[in-house]
Amino acid sequence: MAAATHIPATERAVLIGSRIFTTLVFIFLIAPIFVVVPLSLTAGQLLVFPLPGLSLQWYREFFTSPLWTGALANSVFVALVTTVAATTLGTTAALGLHGARFRFKPILVALLVTPIAVPVVIIAVSAFYFFASINLVGTYLGLILAHIALALPFVVITVSATLQSFDPNLPRAAASLGASPLRTLRTVTLPIIAPGVASGAVFAFVTSFDELVIALFLTSPQQRTLPRQIFSGVSENISPTITAAAVVLLIVSVLLMLVMEWLRARSQRLRNPLETA
């Protein structure tokens, strides 16, 4: 920025002004999210500043009350099953889309990605209407099936993007050396696209773990998930336990984001090994 001295005053004012504005916007983006962290550590009963003192009492409440531990267990269970199923289905679909050219391919692509474009309240109400007729409302299976449908497009998109930079000569080389298609997939293709598959899995997990609207329609109290438990708490009366639960969700989100960024950096390094020194 050696040229900065030659910038006229008005332009410098714009530059400084836009930096101040940007800082304020970042505060607006980040501060409200992290304000729940100190509140969850309050020694008092109310969600107000200044804190009367620090305490882990609300985390103790969160991790001992069956209402919250049950919700956490449900969320983890549903998200894990959704992740495994959506990742398997989505990866095979992406491989199929990548490997074949046929006339109806754009239609299949559109079909597979449309669920993300439809407002989730419509998906939730439709699933409720349909599942009520086949007795899947108020079951784990119903919730998981709806979550898989919602998460599947993310896996298809992420794995497809990875496959686009995948060298098609590698499986040919494997085949010419006599490897069966299955062996080529297992020993050549999958290891190379693994970061993409892992990103898809992270997306699938987060989609299910944070999902609220479908859970509101499809779960009975027995399958209530963490977001549902938080939502009913917020709509009635916010206790500090809710902020502890929100912090748990927040930690999971930030961890998954870091995993995602690490995977992205890793796959970029694999793609252009010379670029990052």
Binding site: I33, V206, D210
Partner: peptide, 13 residues
């Protein structure tokens, strides 16, 4: 970070 944080957590905040 806000992009990844659940909509519910942000609305609650």
């Amino acid at each position: 970070v806000p992009f990844w944080t659940s909509l519910l957590v942000r609305s609650t905040a």
